[in-house]
């Protein structure tokens, strides 16, 4: 049961971060873009997390960055889930050539090194926050599709689905009312991992200068900007680095907790 403690801890952290992100304009002591000729200064009472190379308050930027990073993660994962679940459900439910062609499309997408696809699409769309969300979502739905399809292939053999079909339920009803709820465990797990992945992907994109663009701050681009200052102003990189790590860890723990709670096999294993 220790895992569930970790999951609750993760949930608590995410709730706090979410709250901080939502109330950033109220909490932030400074404007996140306000520069000062003083340049980078270490943490002090005026600036709890110090200031960055342009003299901007790192705390305020982190708070506003939370809004950006969390929403990039959330929106990207929602896009990926919608696409993935839809594709996977249809493929798994109908099987046959429908399954075949959808899975081949998944293969096509998988066959692209995702970073190339992201870069090419980013180049086409010019990088801004919406496109970052869209592109990450668009290139990460395939895992979900495979997973949901797998679940569906399994579930559709189960008696209650056969029963539902026997009493004449429509396809859509069977998919959405009977099958999808039974596949939600893995989907939730995939969602938490996906969100964690999206936050990391945004930071990797920032490394290439293709992530969320300045002056908007995301944890990813803060971390990227800080890498040149790792020795002179370590607080610039430690803060966003920790924020990303803690967030991603929390999401993993939540996912792990959900996995263990929902998986019936694990449940009787634990007892």
């Amino acid at each position: 049961m220790r895992r569930n403690k970790a999951a609750i801890f993760g949930l608590a952290i995410m709730a706090i971060f979410l709250g901080l992100a939502i109330f950033a304009p109220v909490i932030a002591p400074y404007s996140p873009d306000e520069i000062s000729s003083a340049g980078a200064s270490p943490p002090s009472w005026q600036h709890l997390f110090g200031t960055d190379d342009l003299g901007r308050d790192v705390l305020s930027r982190s708070l506003y960055g939370a809004r950006i990073s969390l929403s990039v993660g959330a929106v990207a994962v929602v896009i990926a889930l919608l696409l993935g679940t839809l594709a996977g459900a249809v493929a798994g439910y109908y099987g046959g050539w429908v399954d075949g062609s959808i899975m081949r499309a998944v293969d096509v997408m998988f066959a692209f090194p995702s970073i190339f696809l992201i870069l090419a699409i980013q180049a086409m769309l010019t990088p801004n926050i919406y496109n970052v969300m869209f592109v990450i979502g668009l290139t990460s739905w395939m895992g979900v599709a495979r997973l949901v399809r797998g679940e569906f292939l399994r579930i559709r053999q189960l008696q209650y689905v056969e029963a539902a079909r026997a009493i004449g339920c429509g396809d859509l009803r069977i998919i959405f009312r009977h099958m999808l709820p039974n596949a939600q465990g893995p989907i939730i797990v995939a969602a938490t991992l996906g969100m964690a992945g999206a936050i990391l992907t945004e930071s990797a994109l920032s490394f290439l200068g293709m992530g969320v663009q300045p002056p908007m701050s995301s944890w990813g681009n803060m971390l990227m900007d800080s890498q040149a200052y790792m020795r002179d102003a370590p607080w610039m990189s430690i803060i966003p680095g920790l924020l990303i790590m803690v967030t991603v860890l929390s999401l993993y723990f939540i996912g792990e907790g959900v996995r263990e709670t929902l998986s019936p096999k694990e449940r009787h294993a634990g007892s």
Binding site: Q122, A123, T126, P127, N128, G209, M210, Q213, P214, P215
Partner: peptide
């Protein structure tokens, strides 16, 4: 407003 674009674009 600042718009950052890829060099070639």
């Amino acid at each position: 407003k600042v718009r950052v674009m890829e060099w070639s674009a």
